[in-house]
């Protein structure tokens, strides 16, 4: 009889270990939502990707429909080439535009897609032509200060005569 209890205990042990693995896979990791295989890829050129990383989310209307698969530098265009993997159940029109946005003030960067009005749909491997670069805080602050200074000069000049 002791043999039986031992075997049951080992069975429970193994089952508990496997259950823990399933729980980690389904509940903790992203295996249930995106496995990365299914889906179609599109590419996009960006002048500047800021801090965009691989596996960053790709959203339409705020809903995540895919992930950034790779970010490489394109020697020919002198721009960044981003490959996006989109869940295959979604379709996007050909004139979709892509922009890199930041979640919150200091959050991670992601790609927001905005579907256009075209009847034709994007196909596997095609390029999203309309892109908008990342918002770079330093450049914005620099431009703002420059504009302010220019404005100041103008009012100073205007006051002279």
């Amino acid at each position: 009889m002791q043999k039986r209890t031992q075997e049951i205990a080992v069975g429970v042990f193994v089952a508990a270990g496997l259950a823990a693995l399933v729980m980690l896979a389904m509940k903790v990791s992203n295996l249930s939502s995106f496995s990365g295989q299914e889906g179609f890829e599109v590419v996009a050129h960006f002048e500047n990707i800021g801090g965009l990383k691989e596996r960053a989310p790709v959203t339409v209307a705020g809903v995540r429909i895919g992930r950034v698969k790779s970010v490489v530098y394109d020697d020919k265009a002198y721009e960044a080439l981003v490959t996006i993997n989109i869940d295959s159940k979604h379709k996007l029109p050909e004139d979709t535009s892509a922009s890199i946005l930041t979640a919150g003030l200091l959050g991670e960067q992601y790609i927001a897609l905005e579907p256009g009005g075209s009847e034709k749909m994007l196909k596997y491997g095609e390029e999203i032509k309309l892109t908008q670069s990342a918002f770079i805080l330093e450049q914005m602050v620099g431009r703002f200060l420059f504009d302010k200074a220019a404005e100041g000069n103008k009012t100073a000049e205007g006051a002279v005569p």
């Binding site: 193994v14 270990g17 496997l18 980690l24």
Partner: peptide, 12 residues
């Protein structure tokens, strides 16, 4: 591996 997996799952 079974024990480590259980540890992580229970920890979460």
């Amino acid at each position: 591996p079974l024990l480590a997996t259980m540890f992580s799952a229970v920890g979460v």
